[in-house]
């Protein structure tokens, strides 16, 4: 009975993982969301947005959380496919955007909407992400201008080798080319993108480079940790601290002057766009392979509306 189906599934994978999904027109009713790690605010925002919007559209939604482990995520996607979901919204966990979940879904004819990361070798039917490179370039540019084009910079990177870490670094380095008087004194990597890591790493870096005037945490949690370390260090000079993502907690901190700037990703819109793309893909309509959304440079001056209503 079902054995035949799995045999077929295996054979399909063997044949090819790249064949586009057959476009038989249908109506989306059952949707799966595999999220990387709900401990991270950014992912949790996307989850809540998908949840709310699915409800609005009257869709049945099943959510699984890999807690950062790609092996768990493969199992969870298997479980989602067992329940005959019609489309999969896939936020890959771990440094490697594992290709296996996408292949499994495609083998069963289920379209895949990737958010934030897109696996090498087995891309999703559409990929939704911030234009990290451009946005990082924009915010770094802003920061360098704020300190007068001159100063010593510390960078707390995200998890090494992940797409966001690589892209954000790339964007910022592009910005730096125009500011020869900015020197990067030290850069270190976090493992979990977490606030306590941001605090510890920054504290250590400030110990070695007490002349720093700019600190960048590549995510808001890192930046909030960094801001706390700056506060504790109690150095004479002004230090410009900025982040990335626009987490809800970070936006409030930004309003209260805890740190100086962030680049707000449109997480709510990510979620809605992903659900809309799923509906279209299932209905057999065309969806662009790549949907890049610019993040918005946010400071104390324009943060108000974002706190009211996250984009």
């Amino acid at each position: 009975m079902k054995l035949k189906h799995s045999l077929f599934a295996a054979a399909a994978i063997v044949a090819t993982a790249l064949t586009p999904v057959s476009s038989s027109a249908a109506e989306l009713q059952k949707l799966g969301l595999a999220v990387a790690n709900l401990q991270a605010n950014f992912f949790n925002q996307i989850k809540m947005s998908v949840e709310a919007y699915s409800k609005e559209k009257g869709l049945e939604l099943i959510i699984v959380d890999a807690k950062g482990d790609s092996a768990t995520q493969v199992s969870q996607v298997q479980d989602l496919l067992t329940q005959d979901i019609q489309a999969l919204i896939y936020v890959p966990a771990g440094a490697a955007a594992a290709a296996v979940p996408t292949r499994l879904a495609h083998a069963q004819g289920v379209p895949v909407i990737n958010i934030d990361r897109n696996p090498e070798g087995a891309p999703g039917d559409t990929f939704i992400a911030s234009d990290s490179v451009a946005s990082a370039k924009e915010i770094c540019n802003y920061a360098f201008e704020q300190v007068g084009g001159k100063g010593t910079m510390l960078i707390v990177h995200g998890q090494k080798g992940t797409t966001p870490e690589v892209d954000r670094t790339k964007g910022c380095m592009e910005a730096k080319e125009k500011f020869p008087d900015i020197t990067i004194a030290s850069e270190q990597y976090s493992q979990m993108w977490s606030q306590d890591e941001g605090f510890q790493i920054t504290q250590n870096m400030l110990q070695a480079h007490s002349d720093a005037t700019i600190v960048w945490g590549q995510a808001d949690a890192l930046a909030l940790g960094a801001a706390q370390a700056v506060k504790v260090a109690n150095l004479p000079q002004d230090i410009f601290v900025f982040g990335f993502d626009g987490d809800t907690a970070a936006l409030e901190a930004l309003r209260d002057g805890v740190f100086d700037a962030t680049s707000t990703q449109r997480t709510q819109y990510f979620g809605r766009l992903a659900v809309d793309s799923a509906i279209k893909l299932v209905a057999g309509e065309e969806v662009p392979k790549l949907q890049l959304l610019p993040a918005t440079l946010t400071t104390k001056d324009n943060v108000g509306p974002f706190i009211e209503n996250h984009p």
């Binding site: 950062g68 482990d69 790609s70 092996a71 493969v74 771990g94 440094a95 490697a96 594992a98 290709a99 296996v100 998890q159 493992q191």
Partner: peptide, 15 residues
């Protein structure tokens, strides 16, 4: 086995 299952290897596996 995990490497075969994921078709990739990463040092953060198995935490």
């Amino acid at each position: 086995v995990l490497a075969a299952r994921l078709d990739s290897v990463q040092p953060s596996s198995g935490v």
